[in-house]
Amino acid sequence: MAQHNHTSQPVKKVHANHHSMKPHIVSFILSLMLTALAFAAVIYLPEQKGFVYPYIVFLGIVQALVQLYVWMHLKDKGHLFPVMGIFTGVIIVFTCIVMALYWV
């Protein structure tokens, strides 16, 4: 039972700081706003395609980064290899997309 006391200490600390709901609610609201901005741009500025295309792609990338870093914990310690793994994928994807858009 000595173990009991030993482990309950750090657990308490974890709830208080690290695993509070707040950053997650904030990123949810942020994601909702980014989504709403993208939909609004398409609804209200259908004529300005030259602006809207890069703008909504940019909003999508920001939202993806928010979710990767906050919800999927990439911002936490010890995530160097996960970051390398996922961004290696992203680099390949970027290459594919550029090829599909400009060479095919």
Binding site: G85, I86, G89, V90, I92, V93, C96, I97, A100
Partner: peptide, 22 residues
Amino acid sequence: LGFWLFLGGETVLFGSLFATYL
């Protein structure tokens, strides 16, 4: 860690489908 590497591969899968779509 292994799952993150898998997600990197999934990213490539979806990326190639996005490229095809575009």
